[in-house]
Amino acid sequence: MPRPHYLAVLDRSGLLTALARFDPHVAGTPPLGLDLPASDIDVICQATDAEAFARTLWDFASAFDGFAIHQWKSDGRPVVASFHLDGWPVEVFGDPRPVARQPGWRHFEIERRLLGLGGDGLRAAVMRRRRDGLKTEPAFARVLGLEGDPYTALLTLDEMPDPDIVRMLKSRLT
């Protein structure tokens, strides 16, 4: 039986409402149309009060299958929770920085922009790499011929003008 659409799952669950004071943003492969059967729903939040964020997640999701929560020891000490909702793995990430400045959101925005400029050819090339086992950022980096750490390399495209990206895409996808 196929999984329900990720937006329907989020709407029915009330997760985004529960996290409203933490500015939740849905990111990752489902909104990009790059999801695979094992893909998760990513929710990125601004959590300046890690304890309140963790308490909210505990109150909302601790009874769900696979619930786990932890706090990183570095890089702003974000809180990360994972659990399952209606057949979908979910990961909720709370960092003290505004969502727009968090690397996960920046990757998502860059990938959305690239797909908008690269169209079906780029989507198909990235999906081939994803089906071969690569995560999203490494798949984009491989298709685009980006050197070094794929997560860092993708962020370098943030300031690149659209005409330059289009030229790069044409050279990589032809």
Score class of each variant (00 low, 15 high):
residue 24 P to R: 02
residue 159 E to I: 01
residue 150 P to V: 06
residue 46 Q to P: 10
residue 98 P to D: 06
residue 25 H to R: 14
residue 44 I to Q: 01
residue 74 S to R: 14
residue 114 L to Q: 09
residue 42 D to C: 10
residue 57 L to N: 13
residue 2 P to D: 08
residue 144 L to D: 11
residue 163 P to R: 12
residue 153 A to Q: 10
residue 53 F to D: 09
residue 15 L to I: 11
residue 1 M to S: 11
residue 118 G to M: 03
residue 146 L to P: 13
residue 76 G to V: 10
residue 132 D to T: 03
residue 41 I to F: 12
residue 152 T to C: 05
residue 136 T to E: 04
residue 19 L to R: 06
residue 47 A to N: 08
residue 140 F to A: 12
residue 108 F to D: 10
residue 114 L to I: 13
residue 42 D to F: 08
residue 166 V to N: 01
residue 158 D to G: 07
residue 73 K to S: 07
residue 160 M to Q: 08
residue 43 V to K: 01
residue 88 W to E: 04
residue 49 D to W: 01
residue 22 F to L: 04
residue 38 A to D: 15
residue 23 D to C: 08
residue 121 G to A: 14
residue 150 P to F: 00
residue 31 P to W: 12
residue 92 V to I: 10
residue 1 M to L: 11
residue 83 F to N: 00
residue 79 V to S: 02
residue 131 R to P: 06
residue 87 G to T: 02
residue 45 C to T: 08
residue 126 V to Y: 02
residue 138 P to M: 03
residue 29 T to L: 03
residue 68 A to L: 09
residue 86 D to M: 10
residue 101 R to G: 11
residue 117 L to I: 08
residue 137 E to C: 08
residue 32 L to H: 11
residue 169 L to P: 08
residue 46 Q to L: 03
residue 32 L to M: 12
residue 129 R to G: 07
residue 2 P to C: 00
residue 60 F to S: 05
residue 164 D to E: 15
residue 63 A to V: 09
residue 147 E to P: 02
residue 60 F to M: 01
residue 134 L to D: 14
